Amino acid sequence: MDASFYFKGFLLGLAIAAPVGPIGVLCIRRTIASGRLVGLLSGIGAATADACFGSIAAFGLTVIAHFLLDQRIWLQTFGGLFLVFLAARTWRSAGAADAAKLGKSNRLFGAYGSTFVLTLTNPMTILSFISMFAGIGLTSGDPWQAFSIVLGVFSGSAFWWLLLSVCIGSFQEKMDRKAFIWVDHLSAVVIFGFAIVSLYHVFNKLL
């Protein structure tokens, strides 16, 4: 493994994960509602999807990249509608702990799978990875460099979600039911806002 490219990938992973978006809101809400592990797995799902996109860019899998980019309208439409669904479910379940409604294994799998799928609906991330990898000097065709930087991207992203879930989880025990309801309603509104923005961009591309 190339340590220098791993470190560069780690920083890229941090930079990609840190900006607040729908995944961040979901991670925060789920950490508060269901605990640190559920919040962390929500973030790890996104980190896994980022690693998949990073692998496509780093290993030069152009056939897969072109296919995903060609389908970006449909993928982004699905992503926007999925956000609407998540917003509605969050609003309806305001104040109710997820643990009371689902078994532990289903809850953990759902937390991971939902953010993994949601992140995959934005294939334009591949182009971002291609430009970033070129900017840090990734040599096309070098498998060790590619492996190192993808592992670094996943590690950096996962570290951010771990840090976020641990910090947010410290507030969980201090909140009463009214606070939980407020957090759920706010999360639902923010997620719905991201959905509207996403679907608006898709509508503009279709015009």
Rank of each mutant, 00 (worst) to 15 (best):
G54P: 04
V197K: 15
S4R: 10
G193P: 13
I191G: 06
F133Q: 01
N204V: 01
V153H: 02
V166N: 00
I191N: 10
T125D: 12
L26D: 02
I126W: 08
A158V: 04
L12T: 06
L61A: 15
G60K: 11
A111M: 07
W161C: 07
R107Q: 14
I32W: 05
F5E: 07
A158F: 01
I126K: 05
L40G: 06
S157R: 05
P19Y: 09
D70E: 15
A188D: 01
F82N: 09
T119S: 12
A33Q: 14
V63T: 12
G103Q: 09
I149W: 09
S105M: 13
A94T: 07
V197G: 04
F109R: 12
F10L: 14
C167N: 02
G13P: 08
R89P: 03
A47T: 02
F85A: 04
I149L: 10
G95A: 02
V63I: 13
F171H: 04
G156E: 00
V166F: 13
I16W: 03
S157A: 14
A195W: 06
L83G: 10
G110C: 07
S157W: 06
I44P: 07
T48G: 00
I16N: 04
V189D: 00
I23W: 04
S128P: 00
T77H: 06
L138F: 01
V183H: 01
L68T: 00
G39T: 06
F192T: 09
A15G: 05
K101V: 00
R89H: 12
D184M: 12
K205A: 06
F133A: 03
N204C: 06
G43Q: 05
T121C: 15
A58C: 01
G79L: 02
A3S: 09
W74N: 06
L12C: 00
T125W: 15
L186S: 14
V190T: 11
R177V: 13
L207Y: 12
R29A: 08
I28K: 03
H201N: 13
A188Y: 10
V20Q: 07
W182A: 15
V20W: 05
G45A: 10
